[in-house]
Computed example of a mutant assay.
Amino acid sequence: MNEMRPIKCTIFRGGTSKGLYFLKNDLPSNPELRDRVLLSIFGSPDKRQIDGLGGADPLTSKLAIVSPSKEKGIDIEYTFGQVAIEEAKIFYQSMCGNITSGVGPFAINAGIVDAKEGITKVVMRNTNTGKKVIAEVPVKNGKASCVGDYEIAGVSGTSAKILMDMAGTAGALTGSLLPTGNVKDILTVPGVGKVEVSIVDCGACQIYVRAKDLGLKGIEEPKELDSQPDLLKKIEAIRAYATHVIGLTDTPNSASEVRRNTPHIALIAESQGYKNFQNGELIPEGSVDFVARMLFMQIMHKTYAGTGSIAISVASQIPGTIVNDAIKSIDMNKGYIRFGHPSGVIEVEVDVTKNENQYVVNRAAIGRTARMIMEGYVYVRESVFENYGW
């Protein structure tokens, strides 16, 4: 009997994240066994993930499971998983825009989507949320292209631009673009006090707080925030309480356990100059509409989540939200928004209109890049499969 079993696997950089991509049929159909296998592949639980392919960072401990779709008008379905590093858990409650940007190229390369030279439009259904995403993927010689002149902050070099329209993800987590029905809410958070927030759900569900309300400028680097455990606890208390308020957990305390990865929380401030923490490049005040610092898995995100970029751009177009208030001068007709994060600037094409009393997201598209890094087999101990009959 062999001690190890091979599982077909592809490593893709998707946007500013990196993940493992699998065809659904290459994994066990039993969810419990599937997660045992995936945790073994990543090397979790272990803060170094040294015995697996995980990168010991929330931005590299991610996966996508992809399959052809039987639904008319949908090419593929995919499931996103956020793999905990120090726990034997995989979180499936949300989607990830960066990992999503690699799904189309992966499906094309795997032959489950017909490739069309130039641009192949891939219509996908995210199974975590039930929402639709449309990706425009550059193709050359029948494979997803990774050569181009498009650059995204947080990734060195340039690549081919993948445009993802996520307007169809409004209400992805809660069923409503504005989960509380309000553009702002004042929450009385135990141990913190009264905090004004805005909550918007499109792509991702995000909670927005003014940076100055927490004694911050809004241009802090990750290490500045991550080195303040008391402040991190306060921010997590706000996130957890808001998560409970919008009905995603039974109690605020449980949010830190069962919903560690979503909703996100972001700190918002008016546009100001600052330095890219990765390369020291100056980002001028006039180059962005506002600045944001997002927390993910209770530490600062080194860039900004792809789905979060959709949510925050939509929030910027809704009068009265904390994000909209932070913009000194906004042209609602220019068709895009630019905001600053720790590693640079993200631009999102966005169009939001009001139909009677409801806001409607007509377009929310972000440019990303993706590249296949490795394709092959990852080996899993046979003991992982014991008593499961697979």
Rank of each mutant, 00 (worst) to 15 (best):
I7C: 04
I7W: 02
R13A: 09
G15D: 05
S17C: 12
S17D: 06
Y21K: 08
L23W: 03
L23M: 14
E32Y: 11
D35H: 13
L38Y: 07
L38G: 07
L39C: 12
S40G: 08
G43N: 11
P45G: 13
R48I: 03
Q49E: 13
I50R: 08
G52N: 11
G55H: 09
P58H: 08
I65C: 09
S67M: 09
S67C: 10
G73W: 08
G81T: 05
V83L: 11
M95R: 00
C96D: 11
I99F: 02
P105E: 06
F106G: 00
A107F: 02
I108N: 01
I108L: 14
N109F: 03
A110L: 01
G118F: 07
K121C: 03
K132W: 00
V139T: 03
G142M: 06
G148P: 03
I152H: 01
V155D: 02
V155W: 02
T158G: 02
S159A: 15
M166S: 15
T169E: 05
T174Y: 07
S176M: 10
G181T: 03
G181S: 05
K184W: 03
I186P: 00
V189Q: 11
P190Q: 12
P190D: 12
V197R: 01
I199E: 03
A204H: 06
Q206E: 15
G218K: 02
E220F: 04
P222D: 11
L231K: 07
I235N: 00
E236S: 14
T243P: 06
I246F: 09
G247Y: 09
T251M: 11
A255K: 04
E270H: 11
Q272P: 03
K275A: 14
E281N: 13
G286F: 08
M294E: 15
F296G: 05
M297W: 04
Q298G: 04
A305S: 15
A315S: 13
V323A: 07
A326S: 15
N333P: 01
I337R: 06
R338T: 14
F339R: 00
N355G: 00
Q358E: 15
N362G: 09
R363P: 02
A365W: 00
R368A: 05
R368V: 08
T369A: 07
Y377I: 02
Y379K: 06
E386I: 13
